[in-house]
Amino acid sequence: MIFTVIKSITSEQAQEVCFKKNYTIMKTILILLTFLTLTAINAQSSYEKGMNKAFELWKNNTPEEAINMFERIAKAEKENWLPYYYAAQIHITSTFGSKDAEAIESRLKKAQEYLNESKTIAKENAEIYIMEALLNTAYVAYNPSVYGMTHSAKVEQLYQKAKALEPKNPRAVLYHAEWKMGSAKFFGSDPKAFCPEVEKAILYFENETQDIPFYPKWGKNEVKRVQKNCKG
């Protein structure tokens, strides 16, 4: 027990402790005692700290640093598919709206590599299929004339796979609906036909429960954007 606690003390805290080793023993013991109680309460594995840090970097507009952090965690946590998944997600989302073909291609290629890694860890995982569908959507969005035909079919297939595994996955339902709305608009039919699907997604978001820390639960904020197709 004590060893796990010590292991979890970060380097800054350790430095602090070492710095004070020249003080009186009593003082050291006091500090150490408070310290041990504090860490025991706040027991956080390096995995959790790392993941929190990475999300913070992402939130603070340093996505490249966040990708690097996720990649490092992935290399340390060989049985966990989540860090690869998030590294891929950042690469994919950063291509949306970009015009730099070379950057898009190399990012999407890298994202696919990350997803392939996560697929070897977690086989038949709905969230990974959803992310892969988004990756293929990114290809179609950036160069429809080259990738439209070939990658559209993949997107459709990936959403279906995800839904077969988790019929009530809100991200699968929401993004699949958005994808279908897009092609409905393209082929001149009514995108509103898929609005009930969006309603379902909202319900599934409400009921989403997941105990695994850092398990994907994003997407709720995108509902409004998708719902714009249902107005008017």
């Binding site: 790392g50 490249e64 640093e65 690097n68």
Partner: peptide, 27 residues
């Protein structure tokens, strides 16, 4: 800038700054 430098299999690492410099500590 932004290269990922780390010790394989650990959490120790960092990214390079705009001069390509990296520095991190490890136990």
């Amino acid at each position: 800038q932004g290269a990922n430098v780390y010790l394989d299999g650990t959490y120790d690492g960092g990214s390079t700054n705009d001069n390509g410099i990296f520095s991190f500590t490890t136990t």
